[in-house]
Amino acid sequence: MNIFRFVGDMSHLASFFLLLAKLIYTKSSTGVSLKTQALYLTVFVCRYLDLLVAFVSWYNELMKIFFIAASAYIVYVVATSTRNSNASDTYRVEFLVIPALVLACFVNETHWSKGGWSLNVMEILWAFSIYLEAVAVLPQLKMLHQLEDTTNITMHYMASLGIYRAFYLLNWVYRLYYEGYWHPIAVVAGIVQTLLYADFFILYYQSVLLRLPS
């Protein structure tokens, strides 16, 4: 594992702790998009089905289990939050889920000549999870644009997700050059996903960094 991948993963991990800290210490899910969190849970469950059939490393296994468990817990907390004033969580997620699923059925890494049907279904779900992750942040972005007083911690959460994506891009450049490793589906979707965060970082710069006490 190279340093870019590791920094990316740690930033991803930090994003979970930031969001959990916000939910637990402020006892409020205001400004957190339940739709985005439910999409992330879907992403992790679909992608990490290989937990059952492929062992890569303890690092990977534990991170996967943590991502699934933490996002399930976050969805539970946000969904059951009584003081949930998320009327602005209005993104039509079917416009994300259905195209991602259709695309995954046609553009994936299945090899029907090899492997059984279950492995190929896993490949379709893997591609679906990649496409869905690329756009899963959109409901959260829409909320950020609509809410005036977004708490800083939600913004830091988004920033750590953006850093995670940026370092994964660097990781892929490194791996393509030194290892010949490359998954075009993941790379193209990853570039799209990272570009979506560019919009967020403009907002972050304007609303958080410019307001920081000196």
Partner: peptide, 10 residues
């Protein structure tokens, strides 16, 4: 390498 490379990322 490329095609069919193991998926060892998160």
């Amino acid at each position: 390498a490329a095609e069919g490379a193991a998926k060892d990322e998160l």
